[in-house]
Design a protein around this nucleic acid. Structure first.
Lengths: 210, 210
DNA sequence: TGTACATCAGTGAACGCGCGTTCACTGATGTAC
DNA sequence: TGTACATCAGTGAACGCGCGTTCACTGATGTAC
């Protein structure tokens, strides 16, 4: 089906792509009012459709939020994988890019970010969601493997632990200083600079010259 | 006024300590359903009072949440200050205690934690709230000053930056792995161990023997 | 190519419900004399 | 010590509103022959 020739509003009886548009609505509304600041009916209104229409696509608001989180993790995985760029030209440069990508995601995709990390969505219950979330972590994990492999065999830290450290320091800065909503803390420098400095200290602490 | 002799339910016309009890209600309800999962009327019900009663103490739900966040930051400050214990017997031990206190706070006080960091409460608007939040950071800041002072004068990093690093790595681990709700990520070790290891790597990266 | 029919996606009216908020009130407490 | 009065904190009834959800429906699309 051709998608809405003539733009929003000129559609006929059928919307054509309502499922997608409801997700868009959720993202937009989360961005405006937070993950809990809107109703299922709001998404229908946003999409220009009757309040009963969303029920053709999602059982309830919760199912919609899970879908949003799922898509968020998929996009997030892509962004991180791209940023890692197979560790070229240097591991340090690639880590810096991963960090920046994480912060940018928190900043530019507040809808996804909130649904993924603060929407009260339980990752455990939906296998597909869980898998998407795990896959996001894989880029970090792979990067950590490569990092660790550069160290002398004796006294290598577990790559999993290193990946978790990098994740949590990045997530901490993103959640405190790079979020897009009113809960963002003021910071007397850029979040990127703060993270890069931290990453360098951490890598140095691991015994890596960077 | 003597406070509710005979226990909850035996009170007369006046509640006696409704303001406090509404805060308790909010904490309990956040713990159960998240910071957005309850209504102003719910808090009244929880306190065993008519739905109009809360209006004698708070303009609206938002004002209640701000009060909760404020109290949360005050308690948090105390916990961190206690944990720091003037850096005795060693800076490293004191840092470890601070980290553990942070994680415990996230775990044991999910109501406060969510109101402070995820309730959508804008810290900027209320000066008292802002001050309480700032004071929480002061413990970390003071600890970082002492840490930095131990380093050779040349090449000392700014204490503020170190404090921010410690804050964000701790906050990252707390938010991802030590939160009390469904959004907590599984972790193949204790959050405390993960944090301690990270702290050690970081301090080593700063050039400190620990 | 045309037609009949099945399926699908959105409609719009309806419902019960609980919320936020206001209001005149009333019971309890504190205080001036 | 007693009494009158002011103040305070909670009541309960009421309101309008929007939400979540259901329902029989209908317009649009796809397909078998």
């Amino acid at each position: 089906m051709s998608w809405k020739p003539g733009g929003r509003g000129s559609r006929g009886y059928h919307h054509g792509d309502l499922r997608e548009d409801l997700v868009r609505a959720a993202l937009e509304l989360i961005k405006e009012k937070g993950p809990a600041g809107f109703t299922f009916a709001d998404t229908a209104r946003w999409a220009g459709v009757s309040p009963a229409a969303p029920y053709r696509h999602f059982r309830d608001r919760d199912e919609l939020m899970i879908d949003v989180a799922k898509r968020g993790f998929k996009l997030f995985s892509e962004k991180l994988r791209e940023a890692w760029g197979e560790g070229k030209p240097s591991t340090a440069a690639a880590f810096k890019r991963i960090g920046a990508a994480y912060l940018n995601f928190a900043r530019n995709e507040p809808g996804y970010y909130a649904a993924m990390f603060e929407g009260g969505v339980a990752i455990g219950n939906d296998p597909e969601l869980r898998e998407a979330a795990d896959r996001s972590f894989q880029s970090l994990r792979a990067a950590a493997e490569i990092l660790v492999a550069k160290m002398p065999e004796k006294g290598r830290p577990p790559a999993l632990m290193v990946a978790l450290h990098i994740w949590s320091m990045t997530h901490g800065i993103a959640s405190l200083f790079a979020r897009a909503d009113a809960a963002r803390r003021p910071l007397p420098m850029s979040a990127e600079d703060l993270l890069e400095a931290q990453m360098l200290v951490y890598l140095k602490g691991l015994g890596l010259q960077v």
